[in-house]
């Protein structure tokens, strides 16, 4: 049995130790905000926070999450109470189809810098097929 927290709530998991974190989130806990793009660590769509740091959940076996704090996009804001980043993404067109957005929001929520180059570097592990990135950088900078 593995115990951890998801979005601040204590959770236990009793299945296979090598199930991927993304599958546990989506299938066992019905948290489908986290998306799978590549399944190889390359696109960043599946990024969640583990102990406050962004990590790609497609590369994490759930067995390694014992005692860890996991945070997903569901915890960032709600439709009636958006996180400042989410408001900014709406305002600046930082999201189109939205598939990359949950992962991008999770990384951006931990970003310390407002500098253009710092944002570009920290967010370089996220692919977006729609926006052309500039709107994403604008959204993060002007939140």
């Amino acid at each position: 049995m593995i115990t951890f927290t998801i979005n601040g709530k204590k959770r236990t998991y009793k299945g296979l130790a090598f199930k991927r974190l993304i599958d546990v989130l989506r299938e066992d806990f019905a948290l489908t905000g986290t998306k799978e793009g590549c399944g190889e660590g390359e696109c960043g769509a599946c990024t969640v926070l583990v102990d406050d740091l962004p990590a790609t959940s497609c590369l994490i076996p759930i067995g390694q999450m014992q005692g860890r704090a996991i945070e997903t996009v569901e915890n960032l804001g709600r439709p009636d109470k958006l996180h400042p980043l989410q408001k900014s993404f709406l305002k600046h067109g930082g999201s189109q189809c939205g598939f990359c957005t949950p992962g991008i929001l999770m990384s951006a929520s931990r970003l310390q810098t407002k500098k253009h180059s710092g944002i570009r570097k920290a967010m370089a592990g996220h692919l977006c097929r729609c926006t052309g990135y500039q709107q994403i950088v604008d959204s993060i900078r002007n939140k």
């Binding site: 660590g41 583990v50 962004p54 790609t56 994490i60 967010m123 592990g125």
Partner: peptide, 8 residues
């Protein structure tokens, strides 16, 4: 990789 990779 990138930030998410370096954290692991």
């Amino acid at each position: 990789g990138a930030w998410q990779i370096q954290n692991r």
